[in-house]
Design a protein around this nucleic acid. Structure first.
Lengths: 205, 205
DNA sequence: CTCTGACGTGTCAAGAGTGGAATGTGGGAG
DNA sequence: CTCCCACATTCCACTCTTGACACGTCAGAG
């Protein structure tokens, strides 16, 4: 239900055609709320029917420039100030963490370090944007900068976490190796079965 | 496309009925990958057709217990180790930040502090879970703990960010009040033009 | 014995989101 | 002057997700 508000938000800055909006989406909202052509054009239609936006001008190639209406602006404000944002979202990467036990510790470690690398890459991208942009005191600069800082902090924290998590696995592995060694000393038998690479862990003595 | 893998992941730990899975989803994956009945039952059907899971037992009330097949386990492993996780996701709250300029700075500040409070609440919830759970060295404990730590770190960072962002607004407001005062001193005229509620921001001072 | 509540499965409609393709116009490079 | 690319819109078919509804069954409290 928020694509609607993303479109309204962009229109609140200046009137634009569907094509323009697509560029804006790809440029500024790509990391926050990606949208496809079909969605944007569809939403513009619905917005117009609902009286939240209107066609403000016709251009060269059948271009229709949309502007936000007063009603639309009211709806946008209402959404911003009064509708409670929805909680935590689906997270592909985090979901995998839950099931990392299915892999070998080595594979799990590799996965986490991969995540670390990926977030680091993202972080670098954000930093470059931050450095190259010219920030002044106007609306878009102030709030855009806030959003960017969010990205910077989250990616940094994520990378740190991923590295920490990889270390955790190492230390568990080490502890287990120790246990196994002790166990071997105690009962003299070396190898054990491993049907589901899961239950030959934790002989916690 | 990941609901499928969430179900496979849960089945990889032990066979379960659709009903059981729903409980597991609500208990452990609620914050990471919520799912509804219709989705779970639907997916179980598809999984069975695809040969990734099978009905392993029939119970009392038409209960069907599903188990993961070797093929399913292979698919799960493949997904975990080889399919690249998808990037950043849609974020309702962050989207709003972009358009906070539509509100007055005071309202924007309120929004951000509300976010801070909300993340703090979540953080506390996670911490309680962390303290109340008994962690040992088995799979689920180790990797579940990793996921929980992720939640703890992210919420902490988010709260910090929200408080910082609220401060930023304060300081911009202050700077603007200063500019306005200086401007008044320079040319003796108080009001300036403001096409788009941008620069006639709340006469602080 | 009956009724309630947990167990358990399933369907449907509607809205989001994805990805691709068809169609046409106008302006500027060469 | 012509051709190509950027501009610009619209439609389609599909999957995912949500939320509600409908149905039937077993066990135990009163």
């Amino acid at each position: 239900m928020s694509l609607r508000h993303a479109v309204l938000g962009l229109l609140s800055e200046s009137p634009a055609s569907g094509y323009d909006l697509m560029k804006l989406f790809n440029a500024s909202l790509a990391n926050v709320w990606p949208a496809t052509q079909s969605q944007v054009y569809g939403e513009l239609g619905k917005l117009t029917s609902a009286g939240l936006a209107e066609v403000s001008a016709h251009g060269p190639r059948g271009r229709k420039e949309y502007a936000i209406t007063d009603e639309g602006l009211a709806e946008l404000r209402h959404w911003l100030a009064e509708v409670p944002p929805s909680g935590p979202h689906r997270d592909d990467s985090l979901l995998r963490v839950f099931f990392l036990g299915v892999l070998t510790p080595l594979e799990a470690r590799t996965f986490l370090l991969g995540r670390a690398q990926e977030t680091a890459r993202l972080h670098a991208t954000y930093r470059r944007i931050d450095e190259e942009a010219e920030w002044d005191d106007d609306m878009i600069s102030v709030y855009g900068r806030l959003a960017l800082e969010y990205g910077l902090r989250m990616t940094a924290a994520q990378e740190e976490w991923a590295r920490w998590a990889a270390e955790q696995i190492d230390s568990v592995k080490a502890r287990e190796a120790g246990n196994r060694a002790r166990s071997r000393l105690r009962n003299g038998t070396g190898t054990r079965n491993g049907t589901r690479n899961g239950d030959d862990l934790t002989p916690t003595e």
